[in-house]
Design a protein around this nucleic acid. Structure first.
Length: 1049
RNA sequence: GGGCCUUUAGCUCAGUUGGUUAGAGCGCGCCUCUGAUAAGGGCGAGGUCUCAGGUUCGAGCCCUGAAAGGCCCA
């Protein structure tokens, strides 16, 4: 016996039961142990931060992460999937700051970094239980017991080891990074803070002459809205492919000068009557031209004041020549690094000019703007000054205009590896493919050095110590090294601030005291180090690391292209000259039902628990897999998930429930030692099933999630709504013949195979089916579907022509139904004949082979082809453009015309017979093949017809008294069955029926007495007034009246 | 401003190397089937395939440009 299955499914109850089963049998760990010794499949978990609640987007990522480890396990791979937690960084600090009511960094220092970091350590796991609960509930199998944690000393030590490696290769250096900075608050602002403070602002707009050194009388015309940055100018940037012109500009005081600017901006700068163009050139021709500096307040340590090229140069505004002050612009700084330009720092951290900038020393830079403009004017360097309105960021706290301001920081010289990063990226398999050369590839080929330093508290400290006296620096790569240098055992030292800051080393150069530099490192370096640091490599676990590097598969959302995807790739490239992941699925964002991004402020966040509690984790997962290609953003609402349950889960469930119900009634058991007597429907289903196994397997091998899921939906639909619908009678009939055995065997095979195909994607329902269908009869079978081997496609069962035949039969059935509808003949009324017109002789044979099936489906007594001679009233020809167009190209219109002018009935006869016709085109004769023309037919009067392309269904709708009687009998059966249901009888209960009917119906009832009794499982059928104790009902139909009573026999 | 993605029915999405009549599901209306079904079937309403050019015998698909939306970066 199978466990009885109700057609009603309580999804959450079922899933929770499965969860308990997995837990009590420790299935997850068994799935890993079982495959020990098998080939390794490596999955890396991109560590989430547990200081916020998990949301739908986390379910998305976790759902996609889960598929392949499960699939590969079933394929025999050993997949240890270690979890991980990202614990450092600003988000954690901000939460703690909020809790403490802090608004700036000095409060943290007053409070004590020690205590502050302890709170951060706790806060990092505020929602750990939420995460564990959700991870568990959605059946993301990841090993959280052994999860790596980025704040552990061992983890940090490996990160130090990596940094030391970079240090020794000369890749770690100190430079400047331009950040949005509030001069009043004295602090840089994060992107998030900057975004809050954009406003329209009016700034100066000045055009300045920069006279060329080697071409007297010629100046570059340069535009800026921040005159205060001009004293820090070191270069002018031009666009390589921008068209520039040299113009002859008349001076008001007489004479003329030459100015260089972008051609596109001539009119914007000078108006319609712009000066005469005397020369044209591309930006790259300007490269290297030297000009006289506007100011010389600061000494230059490197060559400066020449034209460089920058891809950020546009011709929207200004002159197309961009003034470069590396200290005050991010683009400017990148150019400075690229061209090795000096960086002139003219401004103090409070926003005032340094004393070296003599005329304006101590003045706030924005207030100095007018003075600088006047100075330039006095020296004849100003062409024009005006104002310019644009959006500009202000401090959200104090409304001071922000300055872009260079702060000293540490960099990793990743740009040195730019080409290698790109090369290695070519070895990575990206989904969707465009990320590889698009968003990620572009990012790599424009790689700039990684700004590593952070002036914060909770994170991995930069292990660089600097000598107080000689400024020499050392990088420390392990605790052991630190102990040795410090001259004491530091193995118990917490490597976080402030403890590590207290460690002083002796300078190797001068014997002075070395202190650690104040910076932490970018938290992204932590997670990017994860392939190495999770194992505390190379201090231990050398084998594990080797075995688990690189990853076969990682999966995160698209926002990680410049996050984790990049840091993983950059670190492994610099460290090992190798990739760290082979296949990656890059997910799109989740939007709400209206296509808006989910955000706390919009209050449109969908709580995953709401969805899970209502429709279950399987349905949620399935929706995420099937809704759209993985890389695409997807709308999400719980209504859409509910649709999955209704259309897919319940269809599958009810097929399963049907099977179990009848298998139990018949005492059917799975047997494997004999080949069932399959009928054509069985063969078709098995052909589809094994094609499905083949296709789903191939899709999973290719990381094609859509291809691994949508075909299953189609199959389940056909299984339920065609195979089962057409096979029901085979299960109903009493006894146990070979045909019935074949039906059971086929349906059973389909359901068991489906449970395995669904195991990676819908792990719960897969398990539920498997337990009842397999485990209940085979105690020796694996404990769980997730411990099973992946099914193999039986190539011999796959028969493509069978699939084509059946889809023709379905199409004809559909046409038959349409014809019935048009004739207003309901299906319950049997009809004498249905005739079909077909496209070829071959198709006529298919019709004959499936005549029984169609007769049953359409409730007609006889199925046959439409006779060409007497019944087809008219033919028309449809020249098929695909075939003919490809064959004849531009001659197609003429060929088509010739075919349409050919006598249609003559052509039809030949073509339907499989013979070609000859038509004359442009004086030549062409042979047109049957497969190149579709023959359409119209039936003569007297049929109810429906057609579709070459196919036509024609019904004979005239009714004989016998047909009418049979129709009535079926009506009666229908009503008795309804009554059985409402009376609450079991499917197999036998009944006694009493019928009181008007004469016509009573006569029909007598004629079809056996049929009625067989259909309704009636042991007795009597005529007369129903007894009092019986369930009874009265009804009127087709002009007849009836009262039915029934009682359980 | 740059890069990438998206735009097909009221909604969610398919749409093969370009083929003339652009599909499915949900929702809506009418009809129908049913002792597995929360379902199924048929018919209908609902489309300027975002727009404009171009290539082609033929464009939802290819090319160019534009618009709108999204993400990332400035």
């Amino acid at each position: 016996m199978f466990k009885p299955v109700s057609p009603k499914l309580n999804v959450t109850l079922m899933e929770e039961g499965v969860l308990r089963y997995w837990k009590s049998h420790d299935i997850f760990h068994k799935s890993m142990e079982m495959r020990k010794g098998g080939p390794e499949y490596v999955f890396y978990e991109g560590p989430p931060t547990a200081n916020g609640k998990p949301g739908v987007h986390h379910v998305l990522a976790r759902a996609f992460k889960d598929i392949f480890p499960r699939y590969k396990t079933m394929r025999g791979y050993h997949v240890s999937r270690r979890g991980g937690w990202d614990t450092h960084g600003l988000p954690v600090e901000i939460e703690v700051e909020k809790k403490l009511g802090f608004t700036n960094k000095s409060q943290i220092e007053e409070y004590g970094i020690d205590r502050f970091n302890e709170l951060c350590r706790e806060s990092a796991f505020t929602y750990i239980q939420e995460w564990e609960r959700l991870t568990d509930r959605i059946a993301f199998w990841v090993d959280l017991d052994t999860a790596y944690i980025t704040y552990k000393n061992e983890y940090i030590e490996t990160v130090w080891w990596i940094l030391k490696n970079f240090w020794e290769k000369g890749l770690l250096y100190q430079g400047f990074k331009v950040v949005p900075y509030c001069p009043r608050c004295g602090t840089p602002l994060s992107d998030h803070e900057v975004a809050q403070g954009y406003r329209d602002a009016e700034d100066p707009s000045v055009f300045v002459r920069m006279p060329l050194v080697d071409e007297p009388g010629t100046s570059l015309l340069v535009w800026t809205t921040t005159p205060w940055t001009l004293p820090a100018n070191v270069a002018v940037a031009a666009g390589a492919d921008v068209d520039y012109v040299k113009v002859e500009h008349e001076l008001p005081e007489g004479g003329s000068e030459h100015l260089i600017l972008a051609e596109n901006l001539l009119e914007k700068v000078f108006g319609e009557h712009h000066p005469r163009v005397v020369e044209r050139m591309k930006g790259k021709q300007l490269k290297g031209k030297r000009y006289q500096p506007l100011f010389t307040f600061l000494p230059l340590e490197k060559p400066a004041h020449y034209v460089v090229l920058g891809d950020f140069v546009t011709t929207e505004d200004g002159s197309g020549l961009v003034h470069i002050a590396p200290a005050f612009g991010a683009d400017d700084m990148n150019v400075a690094i690229e061209f090795d330009l000096p960086i002139l720092m003219t401004v103090a951290p409070d926003g005032s000019f340094l004393s070296e900038v003599r005329p304006w020393a101590g003045k706030f830079v924005k207030q100095a703007d007018p003075l600088i403009i006047r100075d330039l004017e006095d020296r004849g360097l100003l062409l024009r000054a005006g104002t310019y309105t644009h959006t500009y960021p202000f401090c959200w706290r104090c409304s001071t205009p922000l300055l872009y301001y260079a702060r000293p920081t540490w960099y990793i010289r990743t740009s040195q590896f730019r080409d290698r990063l790109v090369e290695l990226n070519n070895k990575i398999n990206w989904y969707p493919g465009h990320i590889k050369t698009g968003r990620f590839g572009n990012w790599l080929s424009n790689n700039i050095d990684w700004a590593l330093g952070r002036e914060r508290y909770w994170g991995t400290p930069l292990p660089v110590w600097e000598c107080e006296s000689c400024r020499s620096q050392d990088c420390i790569g392990s605790v052991e090294e630190l102990s040795a240098r410090a001259g004491r055992d530091l193995s118990d030292l917490d490597l976080h601030r402030p403890h590590v800051d207290k460690v002083r080393l002796r300078c190797k150069e001068c014997g002075g005291v070395m202190k650690r530099v104040p910076e932490l490192i970018d938290v992204w370096f932590d997670s990017g180090s994860m392939p190495v640091a999770q194992w505390h490599y190379p201090f231990e676990n050398l084998d594990q690391f080797k075995q688990q590097f690189p990853a076969d598969y990682i999966c995160e959302a698209v926002d990680q292209t410049r996050g984790w995807f990049y840091t993983l790739h950059a670190i492994s490239t610099l460290l090992f000259d190798d990739i760290s992941f082979k296949n990656v699925i890059c997910l799109g964002l989740i939007l709400d039902g209206q296509g808006q991004k989910m955000s706390k402020t919009k209050k449109n966040i969908v709580d995953p628990w709401e969805v899970i509690n209502r429709n279950g984790a399987d349905a949620m997962r399935w929706y995420l897999y099937t809704a759209s290609p993985p890389g695409q953003e997807r709308r999400f609402s719980s209504d859409l998930v509910e649709e999955v349950v209704r259309n897919f889960t319940l269809t599958l469930w009810n097929t399963y429930s049907f099977f179990v119900t009848y298998a139990n009634l018949d005492g059917w058991k799975p047997v494997s030692n004999e080949v069932p007597a399959y009928n054509s429907l069985d063969l078709w289903l098995r052909s589809s099933l094994h094609a499905l196994v083949r296709d789903v397997s191939a899709a999973l091998e290719n990381y094609d999630v859509l291809g691994a899921t949508r075909p299953i939906e189609t199959f389940v639909d056909q299984l339920s709504n065609w195979y089962l619908r057409r096979s029901r009678r085979r299960f109903w009939k009493s006894g146990s013949d070979a045909d019935k055995q074949a039906a059971y065997a086929t349906l059973y095979e389909a359901l068991v195979t489906l449970s395995k195909l669904l195991a990676p994607t819908m792990p719960f329902i897969a398990e539920e089916l498997y337990q009842n269908l397999v485990r209940s009869h085979d105690p020796a079978a694996p404990l769980s579907v997730h411990l099973c081997d992946w099914p193999a496609a039986d190539q011999a069962a796959i028969n493509d022509s069978l699939n084509r035949e059946m889809s023709l039969v379905m199409r004809l059935a559909s046409l038959g139904h349409a014809a019935r509808n048009k004739a207003n003949r309901k299906v319950r009324q049997p009809l004498a004949e249905a005739a079909f017109a077909l496209g070829s002789a071959e198709e006529a044979a298919i019709l004959a082979a499936y005549a029984d099936l169609l007769e049953d489906e359409l409730n007609v007594k006889h199925i046959r082809p439409l006779s060409g001679a007497g019944e087809a009233a008219a033919y028309s020809l449809n020249p098929l453009p695909k075939q003919l167009g490809q064959k004849y190209g531009s001659r197609f219109p003429a060929v088509r015309k010739a075919i349409l002018e050919f006598p249609a009935d003559v052509a039809a006869r030949e073509l339907l017979d499989g013979k070609p016709i000859s038509v004359e085109v442009d004086g030549g004769v062409l042979e047109i093949l049957p497969e190149e023309v579709e023959v359409r037919v119209q039936a003569r009067e007297g049929f109810a017809v429906a057609s579709d392309g070459p196919y036509l269904a024609a019904l004979v709708t005239t009714l004989t008294p016998e047909l009418v009687e049979e129709g009535l009998a079926r009506e009666l059966v229908r009503r008795i069955q309804d009554l059985r249901k409402t009376a609450g009888l079991e499917i197999a209960d036998r009944i006694k029926v009493t019928v009181k009917a008007t004469p016509g119906l009573q006569k029909a009832c007598r004629s079809f007495r056996d049929y009625i009794m067989a259909e309704t499982l009636a042991l007795e059928l009597t005529f007369g007034e129903p007894q009092n104790e019986a369930a009874a009902a009265s009804d009127t139909f087709d002009g007849e009246e009836v009262t039915i009573g029934l009682i359980k026999a």
